[in-house]
Structure formats: structure tokens, C-alpha cells
Design a binder for these strands. Structure first.
Lengths: 347, 347
DNA sequence: CTGTTAGCGCTTTCAT
DNA sequence: ATGAAAGCGCTAACAG
């Protein structure tokens, strides 16, 4: 009846797409039968002919199940909500890419809930997504410091790249390993006075990195300076100025964040400190732009896509009430060598 | 009954939060009454005492309406889906920020659907979000060229920062104005050979910019070179190398994209072309990092937050079946002056 | 002023 | 092998 070339027009005029009853009518069966067939009910026994008729009708009408109605019935939405800070930092792109791939493989729908930097909220503020049944579980990478929300969350959730108040819901990378990689490299090049410019100490990744750095340097008799600052260009600039006042002055510096890297380089340039001659620089965020800078900047490249994928696996496990366990991403990190690292200058 | 300090425990053991009937039971009324009260039904006339009891019960149980059930009944989800390319380019951060603010003001829920760059889809592929009733409307900023999907979409949607096949659903900025700003400035500084490095010509913003540039330069007797390349560091590098082969060589260059800026600067440096001595450079994406580069790079700062907000207004209008009209963002653009721009060198 | 009722589109148990 | 019926949690028209 419907003109060819207008695939969705066969259905009765529903503002939204065709419903189960529409395709049931078209196939001349009850809608519950259609449901069984379309969901591949294993206990089904349908006459092949009926089966065909149903499938054909569904395809022809471009049927898509109403996710709302299904979720209401099943009390499961099939959606997971990622709560992610809205930042310029490109690491989130890699994390999200990994998460989206994995979620698609596992038949889950991902919605990103971006948190504006000017309005950070404690993780508990996001349980409304579960209460309103917009999602089955939460992947939390909110900006707010863990200390601010130690109350615990009684909905399915995992923390991404940070640790929550209780163990079992945390998916993190091997930050100590990353620090180790950095220190091994510069120590091997003879550096004895080493610095880290990083974000605020309340941020869990920062906390773990600096803790590890202190431990490693203490065991190796390396003089370590740590400067915390906001994760922005300006923060990097300020931290660097403070760094340069130290005596003896560090000769190698790791930077926790791509935005800070720009500030660090700029401050060094203005202070007349040459890179890598007087200061080696390594970024903890890898990004293509680093290779194109004035002095190309080395980095520690972390398994970010794996992190995102693992968070998806973990939250699905939580939603399905499988036992809670922390996850440490074991994929290898890579030191991306570029011109910003050189042997320590002679004293 | 419930111990103090466990606010959500008063409700009967629902895995999800309290339902309307739960708070109806607590208040000793019918759940439809609760619905009316909580939704502030204007035609209501409820005894103040009952009113109070209901509100108290709802607050105490931390009631949140089940968005699914509500949406199913109202055939409206209150959600809008933003389909946004998953890129490192920070302009999306500003756009999303503006969109989120406006949506919150207007009581709408925003979900970001990120499109991985390696898997671009035509806009029509996203109508499933409407069919499945996950959202009421689509804000589309997909990567794919318009030509690939000229079929038209019969669900509520607007295109963000690009134009779709039909008029009426497009929310865009004044790209010709941005180009004008650039050309006015460099022409005023005596530049007669001007270049643009930009993304691929199929991208609508690029198309509009280059068209405007050609028109303006023709009218002013300015020699214009346009180089298209992928919106990456490498793309910027390649385009610049091609640019430098031109004779006479351009002395001012606009760059369409922050990632390309890094490639452009790097290529100029390697070719021994000084900035701004031999080449003035202006970015069409403003970002804080530009101020911290080797040579700080000037930019045209666009009203991105306004763009995001306007898209929210437009899609809500579409969802409410108000007439479709294209939107051109009229907020002023600003030329952010930095050291990368200087008078044209003498011939 | 408040309760009853029907139904949004779907899944699932129970009949037949 | 398939249909009937109940119900997920909510809203809205209609009673009373």
C-alpha cells in the first residue's frame, strides 16, 4: 500500500515509530507473539512461516522497540551514565572512545553527563539518574574531591580514574608505574634534582602520583620538589615560577596535565631556562600536539581507552549484582620520547 | 520509624527509589492526588493540610518521579540528545557548556551522544534515539558531510554549527563575519597575499568561511590562497608546506582549527619562516593555550556558548512544534590580539 | 476536594 | 504454537 521508497510510512500514523501492536496487526498475530519472536525467546516454538511474517513486517515498518516501555517493564534501562568533567583536557576523548566501543559491544547505551567545571557536584548528586531511572548505573569521574562526599552511594556505580570512599568500586590506572617510568628515565640520565608540577592534591590521581614519587625518590636519594596548581595553563605557569626559586634548582620536571604543560614551557622560556638543556620536561598526558611544539615534549602515554572500557565492564558487573572488586588497568604504559628530555647538565 | 540519618530508608524496600504509591500511602491519600500536588496542577484545589502532608512525605522519602513512566504517559521524555563528534578540539567544551546551562534553565535533560571520529555516521542514523524514545529531539553536529545524508529527517532536530539539507533547522554562527574580521585586520596592516588553512571543504563551516573569504578578497584585490587539510596537527603541517610553495608567498594566514595551528606553527618554524616577521598567524579557535605558545597566537573568539544555548532553544521549539526558522548567532565576535600578527613585511 | 479509571508500549506468566 | 491478561509507575479525564 505504501509507496516504495518511504520505508517508515507503512505504519499507522504514529508520531513516534511503529509499535509492537502495529507490526502484530500487520503480521496477523498477537503482539505478545511478536515480542517473543523479536526478543529471540529461547523457549519459543513458533511456526517458521509466522516467524518469517513477523520479521518481515518488523523490518518493513522499521520497528524499534520503545526503550522506555521495555525498561519500565524490565526495570532495567540498558543505559549507563558517564559523569565526566567538562574540560579541555583531551584525555577524556580517549577514555570515552574506549568506553563507547566496549559499551556498544556489550549492547549498552552510554549517555555522557558533562559536569561544567564552574559547577562541580559531589557524586551523590548524580543518584537522581538512577532514581529517575534514566540509567542503570553511574560511572563517576566528577571533579569534586573524594573527601567531600565520603557518605557512600547506594546505587550501582564505579569511580573512574579516582577512588571513592569504599573499596570495590574503583577503576584506576597504575599511576605509581607512570611515575616510576619518568623517574627511571631521568635518573638514568643523571638527574638528581627532580620536580613534579601537578594538579591539586585532593585529586586522587594526583595524590597517588605524588605519594609514589616521594616513596621512589626517598629510596634512591633523589631530591624531589612537588608543586600543586590548578590544571590550567596559568596553574602551570605559577607552579613553574615557584619551582625555579628552589635551590638547587631541579633539572627535570614532570607535568601532570596537558594544559599545565603550556604554562610550564612558557614560564621556562620567560625565565630563560632552556629545554632540555637546563630542564627536561615530560608530560603525563600524551597528545599529538606535543610533537609539534617549539621543543617537542616527551610524555608518558597511559592506557586510557582500556580504562574507559574497563569502567564499562565494571559498571555492568555492578548492575548485574556481581561482586564488587577494584580494577587496576594493567595494559602497558609507553614512554613517548621527544626532544624535551636530555642528560642532566653538569653542576 | 526509620532511624534518623538514613533519609531514604523510610520507603518500603524498593530497589529503586520511592514510588508515587509509597508516598501516597505515607500521606494517606490516593496516588493521583499526590501526582496532582507534586506537579502543581493549576486546576487543583487541595486542602492545605493534605498538601502539607504530601509534600512532607515526598521530601522525607526523597521522592523522584520515575522519568520513564512519566515519559511513557506524556509521550515526552524531557530529554534532548546532542550528537557531537568526539574530538580533541576544545570548542565543543564551550558549546556544551552553553547548552547545558540553557537546558538546565529550561528544565530539560541533556544527554551527549559522542560520535567517535573513526566511525562517523549520517545524521539519519541517529533517529533511533527518537524512535526508541530516549529523547524528544536531536541536536546534530555529526562529522559527516551534509551531502551524504540529503534525505531529510522527519523527527525533531536541528543542526548545530552546520546546515542540513532543508532550511529551518540550522543554528550557525556568522562565519563570514569572522573571516571579515581577520581580513580587515591583516589588510589594514598592509598584507596583500593572504592564506587560509582550514578543514575539508565538505564541512559546512569551512565551506562558508572559504566562500566568504573569496568574495571579500575579490572585492578588495587581495591575493587569496586556500589550503584544505584534515583538522589535525599533521593536516596543518601539510597544508603549510603546500602554502609555502606559492609565489608570491602569503604573509598572513588564518587557521581554521586549533589542532591545525600546532602543525602550521611547526611547519613555519622548520621552514625558517618567522612569525610574525614573515608570516602573521590567526587561529579561528580561541583557547587559553594560544597565549602561552612560543609566539602567542592571535585568534577570532566566537560566541560558542551562545551557539550551544541557541541550539537548545531551537530544538525545544521544534519539539513543541513551533515554526522552524534558521538561527544565526548575532553575539559579537572578538579579535583576540596576540604577538603572532604584525604589519606586512616590505616586498 | 479527592478517588477511580484507563492506558502509555512493552514483557512475561499462564492458559489453551 | 499462540493468545489473554496483568502490570511496570505515572498522568489525566472523569466521577463523585
Amino acid at each position: 500500500m505504501s509507496p516504495p521508497g518511504s520505508p517508515r510510512r507503512g505504519a499507522p500514523a504514529n508520531p513516534r515509530g511503529a509499535r509492537l501492536v502495529d507490526i502484530a496487526a500487520a503480521a496477523g498475530v498477537h503482539h505478545s507473539t511478536v515480542s517473543r519472536v523479536l526478543n529471540g525467546d529461547p523457549a519459543q516454538s513458533v511456526r517458521p512461516e509466522t516467524y518469517e511474517r513477523i520479521l518481515r513486517a518488523a523490518r518493513q515498518q522499521g520497528y524499534r522497540p520503545n526503550a522506555l516501555a521495555r525498561a519500565l517493564k524490565r526495570s532495567r534501562t540498558g543505559a549507563i551514565a558517564f559523569v565526566i568533567p567538562l574540560l579541555r583536557n583531551p584525555i577524556w576523548v580517549s577514555i570515552e572512545r574506549g568506553a563507547l566501543r566496549r559499551a556498544a559491544q556489550r549492547g549498552h547505551f552510554v549517555m555522557m553527563i558533562q559536569e561544567p567545571a564552574e559547577d562541580p557536584r559531589p557524586p551523590t548528586q548524580y543518584r537522581y539518574l538512577i532514581d529517575e531511572m534514566r540509567a542503570d548505573g553511574l560511572v563517576l569521574a566528577t571533579a569534586l574531591r573524594i573527601a567531600d562526599h565520603s557518605e557512600g552511594l547506594d546505587v550501582p556505580h564505579v569511580y573512574l580514574n579516582r577512588r571513592g570512599p569504599q573499596p570495590g568500586n574503583n577503576v584506576v590506572m597504575d599511576e605509581p608505574g607512570a611515575i616510576q617510568l619518568f623517574i627511571d628515565q631521568v635518573a638514568g640520565l643523571g638527574h638528581r634534582h627532580v620536580a613534579i608540577v601537578d594538579g591539586l592534591p585532593e585529586v586522587d590521581t594526583v595524590h597517588r602520583r605524588t605519594l609514589a614519587a616521594r616513596r621512589i625518590c626517598a629510596g634512591r636519594d633523589i631530591d624531589l620538589t612537588i608543586q600543586h596548581a590548578p590544571p590550567t595553563e596559568e596553574g602551570g605557569w605559577d607552579a613553574t615560577l615557584r619551582l625555579l626559586e628552589r635551590d638547587p634548582r631541579p633539572t627535570a620536571c614532570a607535568v601532570g596535565n596537558l594544559n599545565q604543560v603550556f604554562g610550564v614551557l612558557s614560564a621556562l622560556r620567560h625565565a630563560g631556562v632552556s629545554v632540555p638543556g637546563q630542564m627536561s620536561v615530560v608530560s603525563f598526558d600524551e597528545d599529538e600536539c606535543l610533537a609539534y611544539l617549539d621543543v617537542p615534549v616527551a610524555s608518558v602515554s597511559m592506557p586510557l581507552a582500556e580504562l574507559g572500557a574497563a569502567a564499562v565492564d565494571a559498571i555492568i558487573a555492578r548492575v548485574e549484582r556481581r561482586p564488587a572488586t577494584d580494577v587496576l588497568i594493567r595494559e602497558p604504559m609507553v614512554l613517548v620520547e621527544r626532544a624535551s628530555v636530555a642528560p642532566a647538565p653538569p653542576d
